[in-house]
Simulated assay, not measured.
Amino acid sequence: MSTNADHRAGLWVAIASFVLWGLMPLYWHLLKAVPSLQIVAHRVLWSTLLVVAWLLWKNGRGWLRAALARPRAAWMLGLSGLLIGFNWSLYIWAVNAGHVVESSLGYFINPLLNVVLGVAFLRERLSRAQWIAVALATAGVLWLTTRFGQPPWIAISLALSFALYGLLRKLLAIDAVTGLGVESVYLFLPALAVLVWGESHGQGGFLPLEGAPGWGLGLDALLVIGGALTALPLIGFAFAVRRVPLSVVGLLQYIAPTLQFLTGVFVFHEAFDQDRLIGFVFIWIGLAVFALDGALRARRQSAAPAAVAAGKA
């Protein structure tokens, strides 16, 4: 049973994790001089070393064998690794190509897309409020599509890849950090190959030989630290969800796309006109309905045991 101190610690760690995720566009923007594929490869390389070191320290040398011994784990984590690798690649490219606002839209849509996948693949049933939330978000996406002549494909691709990733991880039901460790192991060699190829073909600049052009020690350090910034929020998230109700975590998750959106508009000065505002408002109202419904459901579920106990007294 978690104590009040555990709950407070989990709450603050969850907030810190979502704030860090929300401010990541500022960090990736510092690496704008580095090609996006190189950033992703370094992100995989250094986060793999950190996560694997953590798992070796925590679970010993048999952690990988134990993880892959689960039924379906090998192929499902391989597929989820491809999805998260695609998500990271598209996100970093979008940030450094000036699409932070649209990227934030993807993570606003994501929770609603999760419930749609739950209906499609897990035979879950939606409440009337959840259907209204999904309809409002769909209306927002359709509005943006008709006003700008094409769907917000960056947002949809980010939301869909992350939702499918979450579905696979839900079906497998493996610890978040262990799952990330296996996925990272799968991605490690391709990432290393990308880095070696880039260095040998003049597209890299990490710790170059004397006289060769490079990105400089400052950017090299940022690339290494980027691996830690990939792993630490997820480790913090895994710590928090064991100590904080999921309904609370579900509300806190909107911190990240909100900060991304504010960064895109007020720091990077990306376009956000009235047409975009209308589309976002539909989606924000849908999210408000979804979040309120979730909070009311959680309150009813927590009140039910108390009512039963009172009836028995």
Score class of each variant (00 low, 15 high):
Leu23Gly: 07
Trp54Lys: 06
Val52Ser: 03
Leu187Met: 10
His201Trp: 10
Leu23Asn: 04
Gly311Lys: 07
Gly211Asp: 08
Ala309Ile: 07
Ala176Phe: 04
Leu144Met: 10
Phe282Asn: 04
Ala97Glu: 09
Ser200Tyr: 09
Trp131Val: 15
Trp54Asp: 01
Asn4Leu: 07
Phe261Pro: 02
Ile174Cys: 07
Phe272Glu: 04
Gly286Cys: 10
Gly10Ile: 10
Phe272Pro: 04
Phe268Met: 07
Glu199Asn: 14
Arg72Ile: 06
Ile84Arg: 05
Trp284Gly: 08
Leu142Pro: 01
Ala310His: 11
Leu90Met: 13
Pro257Leu: 13
Ala14Trp: 03
Asp220Met: 13
Ile225Ala: 15
His269Pro: 00
Leu252Asp: 10
Ala163Pro: 06
Ile15Gln: 01
Leu68Val: 00
Leu117Lys: 13
Ala304Thr: 08
Leu64Pro: 00
Ala309Cys: 06
Leu192Ala: 07
Val95Gly: 05
Ser127Arg: 14
Ser157Val: 00
Leu229Arg: 08
Leu207Cys: 05
Gly179Lys: 06
Ala173Gln: 14
Leu189Asn: 00
Gly286Met: 09
Glu183Asp: 09
Leu172Val: 12
Leu50Gln: 04
Asn59Met: 01
Ala191His: 02
Ala313Ile: 05
Tyr107Leu: 11
Asn96Thr: 11
Glu124Phe: 04
Trp143Gly: 00
Leu207Val: 14
Gly205Leu: 11
Leu105Gly: 10
Ala271Arg: 08
Ile156Thr: 02
Phe237Ile: 02
Pro257Ser: 14
Ala291Asp: 00
Ala291Gly: 05
Gly22Gln: 04
Val116Glu: 06
Thr3His: 01
Gly166Asp: 03
Asp175Val: 05
Val100Cys: 01
Gly10Glu: 07
Gln130Cys: 08
Asp273Thr: 03
Arg299Ala: 14
Thr145Val: 00
Pro213Thr: 10
Ala155Ile: 06
Arg72Asn: 14
Met24Ala: 12
Arg61Ser: 06
Lys58Gln: 12
Leu160Gly: 13
Trp284Val: 09
Leu192Thr: 11
Ile92Lys: 11
Ala309Gly: 02
Ile156Arg: 00
Glu124Lys: 12
Thr146Glu: 00
Lys58His: 12
Leu164Val: 12
Ala295Asp: 06
His7Lys: 15
Gln150Ala: 14
Arg169Met: 05
Phe237Trp: 05
Leu189Cys: 00
Ser127Val: 03
Gly166Ser: 05
Leu277Ala: 15
Leu180Arg: 08
Ser302Asp: 15
Ser36Tyr: 12
Ile156Pro: 02
Glu270His: 01
Ile283Cys: 10
Thr138Phe: 13
Leu82Ile: 09
Leu296Thr: 08
Leu158Lys: 09
Leu167His: 02
